[in-house]
Nucleic acid binder design. Structure first.
Length: 563
RNA sequence: GUCGCAAUAGCUCAGCUGGAUAGAGCAACGGUCUUCUAAACCGUAGGUCGAGAGUUCGAAUCUCUCUUGCGACACCA
């Protein structure tokens, strides 16, 4: 039932066509606090027509409005405030949530369309840092949100598994590395070799030539180089997967840059055929004046390919394989200009799905205001941060709930949940200056706070035992519960908006709002009391549990039943 | 230099398409566990919304200028 439409009608019946139905509907707003009602109509726009003071108009209209289907309608200043019928409203919402369960808020807007998401994309032989966390958890959450909106996301981990750096790495390994060390601790040792290469390289520039030759051998399919490359890739992926497992995130494909290495000719050919590729300073570029962009460099002057050459191949492949409804790239905001260029080139090529290509940028993670970089050693290892969080959660459990079953599992869910939630709760574009203590907070507006609220709800339901909520009267006129009821109602809209904006933070903020209102509710009202409202209250608790769990799930955060 | 993003309480941030006294969380101070897990709840204190101008009945929100910070500006990804 659309309550906004109901209120619109109530207003229209006391007007004489001064405003259209659409105008009234559009002007309705949600008051700042529930004390001012559930929906409000500002009458400013009628002041000129009626030649009266707004507050007079409001009072006048209220006296004419049929109030029988509301708890109350009142004039307050220039506003008409509508208070919905709590009993009827709550019965409706609670019934919906309990009937639909975790499917509550699901919609069909995506019509099953495929949406490849370019995300995570760590580089082989380098550690996963906090920087990758953002792309990974934002991409994962957007995938969940897309599913909730009827799309079919394809999580594509576009690994950085090709390029001249592998020439360097292979040279470095041959000179200073050994099999045993790599087997013991792949990433750390491979990075060590790589860093050493860059140190030595300053004194012995001939190393660069050697690396170039080695990469050439790799490209030509030379057996030894291919073998090493495959091995590095394999051990790196194994290490990555341990972290992804900890995060509870998986992917549909791992088609990295190497996968597209032999698929670049087609894109280049199309550009040539369309006469888009022109020479500039020895290199091949596509001019983008039409888009008010600088030319995009497609081939280096020595004919070598670039990042964009591979991305064009990738786009063609995805276009053909998935017939995508949208193409998403969850990549840092520092590449915004690059993605404008990529999109423009693809549009020029006539690639259909380029129209719905969206770069989903996010802010930088810095330490003391400085950018992270593997080479300089300014890096925050994600694995370490996750372990710190899990250990802290473990400690808290020993302190607060030592008899808890499945302690290790819960500690993992809470610790990891805190990190993921912490990343997702703010707008994507905000930069984050990394401070470990900030990440390891479990109180206030955090993941654990929402998890705790859910666990408390579950705890009440456990204590209630077997009660048939299906048959229960769900009409709950209790004003203490009202904030929670209205929050429950908002969920389907939040799901739609978060999808429209590609903003997981909207879900995170919503979950906090719902959790907060519920915490307040059960702190002030005892649920388990034998009276005629027991079934309604338990229905509320159950509904909150369902929606909190589903909200967290959309963020990629687990919701333990006890903690 | 050009383009993009940002600037709101001591700190970290909300504030939807302009609307009613600018909101949270941390930190500070005080209160609440014999009663559904105190990872919680309640209260106190804290703000010329970077500056200036404009549009409007009405601006933190829209437009312009300026200041400051961050980022991007072809042979890296």
């Amino acid at each position: 039932m659309d309550y906004k439409a109901q209120v619109t009608n109530s207003i229209l019946t006391v007007l004489n066509d001064e405003l259209s139905s659409a105008e009234v509907y559009q002007k309705l707003e949600k008051p700042k606090t529930l004390a001012m009602g559930d929906l409000a109509f500002p009458v400013f726009s009628l002041a000129k027509v009626f030649h009266k003071a707004p507050n007079m108009i409001a009072e006048d209209l209220v006296s004419k409005i049929d109030q029988s289907s509301y708890d109350k309608v009142e004039a307050k200043g220039a506003y008409i405030n509508f208070f919905l019928d709590k009993g009827q409203f709550s019965r409706q919402i609670l019934t919906d949530v309990l009937e639909e369960g975790s499917a509550y808020g699901q919609n069909d807007r995506g019509k099953g369309g495929n949406v490849p998401i370019d995300m995570s994309s760590p580089n082989i032989a380098k550690p996963i840092s906090m920087g990758h966390l953002r792309s990974t958890v934002i991409g994962n959450s957007i995938a969940n949100i897309l599913t909730k909106n009827g799309y079919h996301p394809i999580k594509d981990n576009h690994l950085g598994d090709w390029g001249t750096q592998f020439g360097k790495l292979i040279v470095a390994y041959k000179k200073w590395g050994n099999e045993e060390d790599v087997k013991k601790d792949p990433i750390n040792n491979l990075v060590k070799y790589y860093v050493k290469f860059h140190v030595e390289d300053k004194e012995h520039p001939e190393l660069d030539d050697e690396a170039r030759e080695t990469f050439k051998k790799l490209e030509d399919g030379n057996e030894e180089e291919i073998h090493l490359w495959k091995w590095f890739r394999k051990v790196s992926l194994e290490a990555f997967n341990k972290i992804y497992q900890k995060l509870g995130i998986d992917f549909d494909t791992y088609n990295g840059e190497a996968f597209y290495n032999d698929k670049m000719d087609e894109g280049i050919q199309i550009l040539k055929d369309k006469g888009l590729l022109v020479e500039s300073q020895g290199a091949q570029v596509v001019k983008l004046d039409k888009y008010n962009l600088n030319p995009a460099l497609i081939l280096k002057s020595d004919g070598a390919t670039l990042y964009i050459t591979r991305d064009i191949a990738t786009a063609i492949y995805r276009d053909r394989t998935y017939k995508p409804a949208m193409n998403l790239y969850v990549v840092g905001s520092e590449q915004t200009y690059y993605f404008k260029q990529l999109k423009a080139v693809l549009l020029e090529m006539g690639l259909k799905s380029a129209e719905d290509l969206h770069h989903i940028p996010f802010g930088l993670i810095t330490v003391n205001g400085k950018k992270l970089s593997t080479r300089s050693g300014r890096i925050i290892l994600l694995d370490k941060v996750l372990d710190d969080a899990i250990n802290l959660a473990q400690k808290q459990i020993e302190e607060k709930n030592p008899d808890l079953p499945h302690k290790d599992e819960v500690a993992k869910e809470v610790g990891v949940g805190a990190i993921i939630f912490g990343d997702l709760k703010n707008e994507r574009m905000n930069n984050i200056d990394f401070v470990l203590e900030d990440q390891l907070r479990f109180e206030g507006e955090t993941g654990p706070y929402v998890q705790y609220s859910h666990a408390r709800a579950e705890s009440i339901l456990r204590k209630a035992g077997d009660i048939d909520l299906h048959a229960a009267n769900k009409s709950l006129a209790d004003p203490e519960a009202w904030e929670t009821i209205t929050a429950l109602k908002d969920f389907p809209n939040v799901v739609i908006n978060a999808c429209r904006d590609f903003e997981p933070s909207e879900i995170a903020k919503y979950s906090l709002r719902l959790a907060k209102s519920f915490n307040k509710y059960y702190a002030h009202s005892k649920v388990l009391v034998e009276d005629d409202q027991l079934g309604a209250r338990l229905s509320l608790v159950k509904a909150v549990s369902i929606v909190l769990k589903e909200s967290l799930s959309l963020l990629g955060v687990k919701a333990p039943d006890e903690m």
